[in-house]
Design a protein around this nucleic acid. Structure first.
Length: 624
DNA sequence: ATAGGGTTAG
């Protein structure tokens, strides 16, 4: 497709009816700018350099196609005496795709100034530009234009208005636009559902979802994703089951959402089922889906399988590498993470800042201080990546855990930005481990004021006080939380059994076999006492109230889940638990003893990492 | 007859 002859004879005349004029389809066969320029010059030689029909096609290629050149499009545009709406729309679209949203808006107003009436194709792009630019004023104004120019009935424009208002956080406006549509289509519904969900109104999203007259896989997925993103995994499963019951096939989007739900719960068996489905149905494994699968196996504790899937990928995008390195980090396999990083470099995949977050956190979790320091410098020196907040967080974590609190503090002082709650929280955690009460207190108060609504920050300081036996101060922190109306996130643990996800909350009696399970906990804790287990009540604020101090420690959610696991599985079978908070000191200690006395491997995934308990020891080396 | 909208990682 290198030479294409344009009709030269007779020379086209602008006065001819459309059917008799030359067509310019040749431009649509272009794949490079060089080819396009050839056609362009031929067309100019035909005397058509100011012909909208011809130039519109040239501009379309330059402004929108992958291999185009927006500046060239603009040059062509500047030579046109009377560009038509198509051409303006195309340039606006080009700016949009180049993410030059201010220029989109600017160009739209220029279009109006040039007295070219916008058409129904104009508004979707310009509304998206307003959306991306957070241009609320212009957005409202353009909404008025949509109506004024008579496109109040155009569905695509209305759907984009819904999208835009939702993005602005103006759900009332979004709903009003939706309500005015005579026949909303599936996209209108989905846009509204996603709008509610992204702003955290999941129940409202569900109300809309349940009103939909017809649903396709995209709408099912919008609802599933809404639940997954708000950590309501059981509800995601419920919607998924309904979708299956209605015989809707899952596509790669639904598969990805459901894998995330499995990841969130630590539901390995169900995750394996989805993965098997993807393979047997030949659902396309793009790099995003591959990353989701690998992430599921990592976070559900099946690291070997994650490595296998990773190894089998024909294309390894940066995110696959990052995910795998992060998985090794989470399992405390620092050396392996570094090995993998070196392999990545060998395959000439350029690491990005996330790669280094994961690599540094691998060093931190494995206590590889020397290596961590090395790669922190390496990142900037070799790849020119300036450390961001997260990188400082990793290094502070690394140094702090290793007891190098002074160095961690100095690093914080030298940071180019002021430390956020995450960075200071890392230092605070280190203070608790190393019983640096005074420094910890100072940092703890700072952290709380940085994130006064994050209950975890209060818990950390309270635990530090508890560590020092300062019970009055523990009470003060709790009072502060109460006064501010900050609710502690309830801790829960889940264990999957024959594909059923069993969820436990501390002291909860909701499980049908509660009696049996609680008896098992008592028996379990009695049998580890002779081996040396002593209950440790320091971490009390973790799950419970003061007056219940002594007792419910025994009934922390992970103890219930482990007891259930012992009850329901054959001797020797590995027990896998995942919980939403960090595992407390007492549970960690107890689990070590359980692994020895009951001769079981126990995997516990907590908020931060994996703990692999075996024969009385934990893979984290008590380093968490 | 050239153009527009919805869902997925880390």
């Amino acid at each position: 497709m290198t030479s294409l002859v344009l009709p030269q004879d007779p020379p086209p005349s602008l006065g001819l009816p459309r059917t008799q004029r030359p067509t310019f389809h040749c431009v649509e066969f272009c794949s490079t700018m060089a080819q396009l320029k050839q056609f362009h010059s031929q067309i100019i030689r035909l005397g058509l350099s100011t012909d909208n029909d011809a130039m519109g096609r040239i501009i379309k290629f330059c402004a929108i196609s992958e291999s185009g050149d927006l500046n060239y499009a603009l040059k062509v545009f500047d030579k046109l005496p009377h560009p038509d709406a198509f051409i303006y729309n195309t340039i606006i679209r080009g700016y949009l795709e180049a993410q030059l949203t201010r220029n989109c808006i600017f160009f739209y107003f220029r279009m109006l100034q040039d007295s070219v009436a916008p058409n129904r194709f104009t508004f979707p792009s310009i509304l998206r530009a307003c959306c991306m630019d957070n241009a609320t004023e212009e957005g409202k104004q353009i909404h008025a234009h949509v109506l004024k120019f008579g496109f109040g009935e155009d569905l695509v424009s209305q759907n984009n208005l819904i999208h835009m208002y939702a993005n602005f956080g103006r759900l009332g406006e979004a709903q009003r636009v939706f309500d005015k549509i005579h026949q909303p289509d599936v996209v209108s519904w989905i846009t509204l559902i996603t709008g509610y969900s992204r702003l955290g109104f999941v129940d409202q999203a569900y109300k809309v979802f349940s009103l939909m007259p017809e649903r396709n896989s995209v709408s099912w997925n919008a609802m599933i994703a809404a639940y997954v993103q708000s950590n309501r995994f059981h509800e995601a499963f419920a919607v998924f089951d309904r979708m299956r019951a209605e015989k809707v096939e899952l596509d790669k989007f639904v598969a990805a959402s459901m894998l995330s739900a499995c990841t969130g719960l630590g539901a390995l068996e169900r995750g394996e089922w989805i993965h098997g489905y993807i393979e047997s149905r030949g659902i396309e494994m793009d790099s995003k889906l591959a990353t989701t699968v690998i992430d599921m196996y990592c976070k559900c504790g099946f690291l070997e399988k994650a490595i296998e899937v990773f190894g089998g990928l024909s294309q390894r995008g940066i995110s696959s590498w990052n995910c795998m390195i992060g998985g090794l980090a989470m399992h405390g396999q620092g050396e392996a993470a570094i090995q993998l990083f070196k392999e990545m470099e060998k395959e000439v995949v350029a690491p990005d800042n996330i790669t280094f977050v994961n690599l540094l956190s691998a060093c931190a979790h494995a206590g590889l201080v020397k290596e961590g320091r090395y790669y922190f410098r390496y990142m900037t020196e070799v790849y020119g990546i300036e450390p961001k907040m997260e990188h400082f967080g990793c290094i502070v974590d690394l140094l702090g855990r290793a007891g190098l609190l002074e160095e961690a503090r100095n690093l914080i002082d030298e940071m180019p930005m002021s430390p956020d709650a995450g960075v200071l929280g890392a230092l605070l955690g280190a203070c608790r481990i190393h019983r640096e009460i005074e420094l910890g207190e100072k940092i703890g108060k700072q952290v709380i004021e940085l994130e006064p609504h994050n209950s975890g920050r209060y818990v950390l300081l309270a635990n530090l006080y508890a560590e020092a036996g300062r019970w009055d101060d523990v009470a003060t922190v709790r009072r502060l939380m109460n006064d501010r109306g900050v609710k502690k996130v309830p801790g829960f643990s889940v264990i999957e059994m024959d594909g059923v996800v069993n969820e436990f909350i501390a002291g909860g009696r909701g499980h049908p076999q509660a009696k049996e399970i609680y008896d098992k906990v008592d028996q379990m804790l009695e049998s580890i006492r002779p081996a040396g287990y002593l209950p440790d009540t320091d971490g009390v604020l973790h799950d419970i109230e003061e007056e219940e101090k002594e007792h419910p420690l025994y009934y922390h959610s992970e103890k219930l889940a482990i007891a259930f696991g012992l009850l329901k599985t054959k001797p020797g079978v590995t027990i896998r638990i995942s919980k939403n908070l960090r595992v407390c000191k007492d549970c960690h200690n107890a689990t070590k003893f359980i692994s020895k006395v009951f001769n079981r491997e126990i995997f516990v995934r907590d908020r931060n990492r994996f703990h692999h308990f075996r024969n009385g020891e934990c893979s984290c080396n008590d380093y968490w």
